[in-house]
Nucleic acid binder design. Structure first.
Lengths: 242, 242
DNA sequence: CACAATATGCCAGTGACCGGCATTAGCTGG
DNA sequence: CCAGCTAATGCCGGTCACTGGCATATTGTG
């Protein structure tokens, strides 16, 4: 948990309005919908001008996704701060947990609200995914800076591993949100449950990985019929079909 | 390649303006930028009203991403049409190749233009990723309909495999675009190169998969220092710390 | 206290997007 | 060939997100 000490008065003031905007935005969007809430309503409720809003957030979507951005900004900082590890899944998970631990109070509530909004609002999904992809690029840059990929294949591996992790993350928060519809007892247990979901999702990755290797037995869904009549013709490795 | 025969005159006319809009949009956006081109410029160039534009496309971004949508719509149709296979990576690749084969003439040129625009325009990235995620959901629904996942873990595996595939796809078209800056000799070879890139990217997935298994040796980046002093404490598999 | 640096508010503009309504153009049965 | 139907289109007005310019206020500093 970070605190505000060491900030100048002006900065604290700005931070206060910023937080008020996030809080009020999540409240309004949740109550009456994202598209149904105008910016004027929001800024009137917080009693600031539109100009001020746009100096704090780049768009209407931005404020709704503030909790998500907060996490990933911290994640990147943490990734850069940490000693260069092997950049494995376990490393990524550690870094993620560290970032989660640094979130300010009430973050889990805000984040869940933000996520629920995403589920209702396609425009928010788009912005969220874009943000994710930007994080991916930046994280890849960090990893590449300390351990340059020897060739294109290695670079692809790094990227796929990261995307795999993000997919697992998305799954985890999906599960978390589904279980968290009924509000948690308190913030601490709520956050602990998030960690548990993340652990579970990350733990499933090796299984998927094994599944992706065609040479290994699929071992999943034994009820399948491998000898199907009109089986899909094998495409990988065959000669170039015009 | 699909042809227009069997369509009524009205439908052909509509299709013509639709295509003209895509063509002109890609041209204008490429020449003077996405944000710098107003809708009025576009519709004036094609000589239709804004109203007509919005009956063909849901947004300004939509028209810029039309080639991408064309591919994935065909992909989904193809996925549903095909006999239920094992839903492996090879299946997905086959389906993808089939969809690529059905694209209309000049698709590769349009698609590359659209992609180049994405690289320049964050807003387009957002919409593109959202579209991808929608395709993922629909594809998962198709797969689940014919082979319901026995449990949550299996469902997660299905999802991760699909996301892995899409990540590989994005990588492949990235490579394709990079190589295709210098225009291809002709459309056929251009498309053949795309297939080659996809094959290569998909082929790399098992390697990544192996990498994601912690029990296997990393085998990639032997210059690493595994015995680092402040090694990250193991996170996966430990007892649940409440 | 004077002065510099920001933050803020106000305002007018631009452009995407969406309704309603009249008009036109392609379809269809006689 | 014509009348009637349907669907596509154009026109128009309105809403709203977002931007830039400029004056004002508030805070940090010597």
């Amino acid at each position: 948990m970070t605190t505000d000490t060491g900030l100048t008065l002006r900065e604290r003031k700005k931070l206060r309005t910023r937080r008020a905007l996030v809080e009020e935005a999540l409240r309004l969007f949740t109550e009456q919908g994202f598209g149904e809430t105008t910016l004027d309503e929001l800024v009137d409720a917080v009693d600031v001008s539109q100009r001020t809003f746009f100096r704090n957030f780049s768009s209407k979507e931005d404020v709704a996704l503030a909790p998500e951005k907060e996490l990933w900004t911290t994640y990147l900082a943490e990734l850069e701060r940490r000693p260069p590890g092997a950049s494995t899944l376990a490393d990524y998970q550690d870094t993620l947990f560290a970032a989660i631990g640094q979130m300010t109070e009430g973050w889990e509530r805000r984040f869940l609200a933000s996520r629920a909004l995403c589920d209702r609002t396609p425009a928010l999904v788009a912005h969220s995914l874009r943000h994710c992809s930007e994080i991916t690029e930046r994280a890849l840059a960090v990893v590449a800076a300390r351990r340059p990929a020897p060739d294109a294949a290695a670079a692809l591996h790094d990227r796929l591993l990261l995307e795999l992790m993000l997919a697992a993350w998305r799954w985890a928060i999906g599960q978390w949100a589904a279980a968290g519809e009924v509000p948690c007892a308190d913030d601490t247990t709520c956050r602990a449950e998030l960690r548990a979901h993340v652990r579970r999702a990350f733990g499933a990755i090796p299984g998927t990985a094994r599944l992706a290797c065609p040479e290994h037995s699929p071992e999943h869904g034994p009820e399948r019929d491998p000898g199907h009549g009109e089986a899909p013709r094998t495409a990988s490795g065959g000669p170039e079909p015009r």
